[in-house]
């Protein structure tokens, strides 16, 4: 069905970091459209200066993150037929990050946090000159590699969304996923637990699971990344029995093998 007579009405945030307001637009829409299509149509017919960031329009680049009716969503993955006919749809930028213009925000907070994470540091090679990983070990971390860095989890995390002051001390769920992928990697030797506890501020997370609820890649951020990291932190810093066990069975830290290059960003 091609139904050009049906209209879509959207209330879209227009403004810059100095301020702005919601403006309402009505444009014709057709069946099969997503919210991003309607925004493009508004750009074409009503507001050519409306700023929106997008790239793939297939839910894989993570560019078009925004808040639709108060839910953190990808604009390109939210179909118009999920709304009631005639409903006014509210679209605003991710409120956790500084606004640049309209729906475009400055997400450089995330890139700064990413720089703080020590890179992968592999174990020494085996006698035959290779490194081996087994499927059962890789299956667990594979989930974390699905992340498209849309930063919707960062946007919805109340630790930084509602408490700006915590941004210095808290990395956010996207980076706990990254840290879990590295910490649970069967070949990695870097110890990031102190960083996870202190600099990344894992203790700030009160596991209310909003990050998991909004993840467009369906990564179980809280259950599979954050909570296992919390348990590792407990073993390392809070569990007296684990402390005694470490003292009794203390082992030296693994070192890179002879001739192994030190990755350039491997310094904790």
């Amino acid at each position: 069905m091609t139904d050009e007579t049906r209209d879509a009405t959207m209330s879209i945030w227009r403004g810059t970091k100095t301020g702005g307001r919601f403006e309402t637009y009505t444009v014709p829409m057709v069946e099969g459209m997503v919210v991003l299509d309607v925004i493009h149509r508004i750009q074409a017919l009503r507001a050519p200066d409306l700023a929106v960031r997008w790239n793939c329009k297939a839910g894989k680049c993570g560019s078009c993150s925004a808040e639709i009716n108060g839910h953190a969503r990808l604009l390109c993955m939210t179909r118009m037929n999920t709304f009631a006919p005639g409903e006014e749809i509210t679209v605003s930028p991710m409120k956790t990050f500084p606004i640049i213009k309209d729906l475009v925000t400055d997400v450089s907070f995330n890139y700064e946090k990413a720089k703080e994470i020590p890179a992968f540091k592999p174990k020494p090679k085996e006698a035959d000159g290779t490194r081996r990983m087994y499927q059962e070990d890789i299956d667990r971390v594979q989930e974390f590699h699905k992340c498209i860095e849309c930063f919707l989890c960062q946007d919805t995390c109340h630790v930084i969304r509602d408490h700006e002051e915590n941004k210095k001390a808290f990395a956010g769920p996207r980076f706990f996923v990254r840290l879990a992928a590295l910490e649970m990697h069967p070949l990695d030797t870097n110890d990031r637990l102190e960083l996870i506890r202190q600099k990344a501020g894992l203790g700030f997370c009160n596991i209310t699971k909003c990050c998991t609820e909004v993840c467009p890649e369906d990564i179980h951020i809280t259950d599979n990344a954050i909570i296992p990291l919390k348990e590792r932190i407990v073993t390392e810093f809070y569990d007296p029995l684990a402390w005694v066990k470490r003292r009794v069975l203390s082992k030296g830290a693994q070192q890179p093998g002879p001739g192994e290059p030190e990755p350039p960003s491997a310094k904790a």
Partner: peptide
């Protein structure tokens, strides 16, 4: 509540329309 984005200073409202409570 204000954030660096400035959005909530002006659009200070819960935008969710479902029965979130």
């Amino acid at each position: 509540m204000a954030t660096a984005s400035g959005v909530r200073r002006i659009g200070d409202r819960v935008e969710r329309k479902d029965l979130w409570w």
